[in-house]
Design a protein around this nucleic acid. Structure first.
Lengths: 350, 350
DNA sequence: AACGGAAACTAGAGCGCTCTACTAGAGCGC
DNA sequence: GCGCTCTAGTAGAGCGCTCTAGTTTCCGTT
């Protein structure tokens, strides 16, 4: 017959992968019940120190690893948080990185699902739902509100950076208007009056940034000077805006970009045209993505509080889970202007 | 008592989320067995057209969605491919986007796991293993080979962009040396002789790129002229290299960056210093990330065949799954030089 | 009318866990 | 010696699905 013990390690050496060991195998090896092994792996009370060690050792020898699928199925709660992101977006990447430790701290696993040109956000969300996520955190979702309304019926949904009024979706976002106001105040304090805003069109937060810009300009008696250029949240649109201003000869003394990527596109395009930042034109971005900090960019920008956004997203989801009856929350974070090297007083024209 | 039917929709309206419906519920509603509903959802033969429609309709009305955990548990094969990526890396994002449709085509689901400063790659891999992935695709993994050797015992592993000799890990990567040679040939053909390479240090593929560069220079009788500057695969290192060349007054006529991000950092730093690309110095990147194509960058670069890499990663994993006995494969793809706007003949010095 | 066979459908045993309810035995006060 | 509590451990019923091995139905044949 052969000893059962010799099986997992040896098996048919490399031709057939050994069947993965289960709790049963670990239990048999130690000579205890399966339930006790479960206790040990869940770190639940009810096993002696000695037993714990024996079980853990046996598991290690066998190469045992708990099966998430079985675990999720057996548990009433999955302890999984689903996170949807646009995989290309560096700001999203920042958030995801911050969400991982946050979730771990409260004992939740994270399941990632990518939204991409090749993968509709509906599909990304369905996948998360199929995996029994207890709650969803959607980063800057460009999703149909009607669809979200459906999803909210099944599971708490937190949207980061974009509001979905009257859908039951919880929101964590930055006080965009406040950030823009700080930027405009800073530019005006430096002496700028001709400040152009490159719009973010349908990008997360851009409607509020646009409104905030207009309001801030008005606040400084600069309503007449306010100018909004079409654009979006990509480098390309910043470059396009730069070219347009260059071609039309209507370059202002300062530009407030829709986000950092847009700002960087702008910066690049004007630099190559021999226009200096901040000598000829000052520039402010939005988000403070890692690249903005780089020595050769040194972008003055409005920082969103990423660690706090991550923490709040997780918290909000959990709160809703604990109290499903409560009204959807909207957490608004205060942004912070980070002054770096792309802003300076305007060149005096004489 | 109450009719069971009124439960799912109504329940306790908003205070308590309705328990999610199961196959049993759908079966009961249609008046068939659970097994038949399973058949319909698996798209397996054995159900009449009429029944399929009824089942699908009932499922829709109930808001039924198959439970992945239960499905995975019940199935002998999970039909899940685990993908590890560095969430910040745009090249990784490209690959992931290409992998999704590829996996879908062969009936596999994708599970993403992020490697990040806050999350060790071991942890990312463990998570995938716990979810019973049939095979792993690791994108540019910076993982300990000894650890991977262990993992390979349990499941096929495909590494994209980085080789792990003698570990049993399958590899899909680009013929780096070939790409670099094309770049050098191009520059030499333009008349360049003073071509500097900014190194990628431990980044995926950089050792081969460095060797390829030296060899290509030698091939043109330029062994003496070969110069390798320290760097890595970030914008910052490109900018640092630029500053160094600027400061030392040793700016060559052409630069071959370790990758596109590095090239962009270089481009930005020299542009701001008033040095023109390609007028004063030509520049070639590597990867052809989306940003390289932008109108204001127009980076000449070596394109890695992303769609093909994605397809091959999936294929290689499946092949190994079908024939676990075969030796680990190494798929080498041919890169392609994309000539854009950052290369030109050197300025004639007179 | 009886038969054969394909198509449509069902029963029920798992998959690998968790969790509730239970038992055994040790320690302890009176 | 009795009941009591506490800790360590076990039994076994699910969780929601898949899949094998049937069973039933409904044809067209002869």
């Amino acid at each position: 017959m052969g000893t059962p013990e010799s099986d997992p390690a040896g098996g048919t050496p490399r031709t057939r992968r050994a069947k993965r060991p289960t709790m049963e195998d670990v239990a048999a090896r130690v000579g205890v019940s399966r339930a006790l092994v479960s206790v040990v792996f869940r770190d639940a009370p009810g096993a002696s120190r000695e037993t714990r060690e024996k079980v853990l050792r046996a598991a290690d020898e066998l190469g045992y690893r708990p099966d998430s699928a079985a675990r999720v199925l057996a548990r009433s709660r999955s302890r999984i948080l689903g996170v949807m992101l646009t995989v290309r977006n560096p700001f999203h990447a920042d958030l995801v990185e911050a969400i991982y430790p946050e979730a771990e701290q409260v004992g939740y696993d994270i399941l990632l699902s990518a939204h991409a040109p090749t993968r509709h956000s509906h599909k990304a969300i369905e996948a998360l739902l199929g995996h029994r996520c207890e709650a969803l955190i959607l980063i800057g979702p460009e999703t149909d509100p009607a669809f979200l309304t459906e999803v909210v019926r099944q599971v708490p949904v937190v949207s980061v950076g974009r509001r979905f009024p009257d859908t039951g979706v919880e929101t964590v976002h930055t006080a965009e208007a406040k950030g823009v106001r700080q930027a405009v105040d800073h530019l005006v304090a430096l002496g700028h009056r001709d400040i152009v805003h490159i719009d973010g069109s349908r990008g997360a937060g851009s409607a509020e940034r646009r409104r905030g810009y207009r309001k801030a300009m008005r606040g400084h008696g600069l309503a007449e000077a306010a100018r909004v250029l079409p654009g979006d949240h990509t480098e390309e649109s910043g470059a396009a805006a730069a070219r347009r201003l260059l071609d039309e000869g209507t370059m202002p003394t300062a530009v407030l970009a829709g986000n950092d990527r847009c700002a960087i596109g702008f910066l690049d395009a004007v630099s190559r045209a021999g226009v200096h930042v901040p000598g000829d034109v000052s520039l402010v971005g939005y988000d403070d993505i890692p690249i903005a900090r780089l020595s050769h960019i040194e972008l003055t920008t409005v920082r969103q509080n990423v660690p706090r956004m991550a923490a709040l997203s997780v918290r909000t989801a959990l709160n809703r889970l604990e109290d499903p009856g409560r009204a959807p929350q909207e957490a608004v974070l205060t942004p912070e202007l980070i002054v770096r090297g792309t802003t300076a007083p305007p060149r005096t024209r004489d």
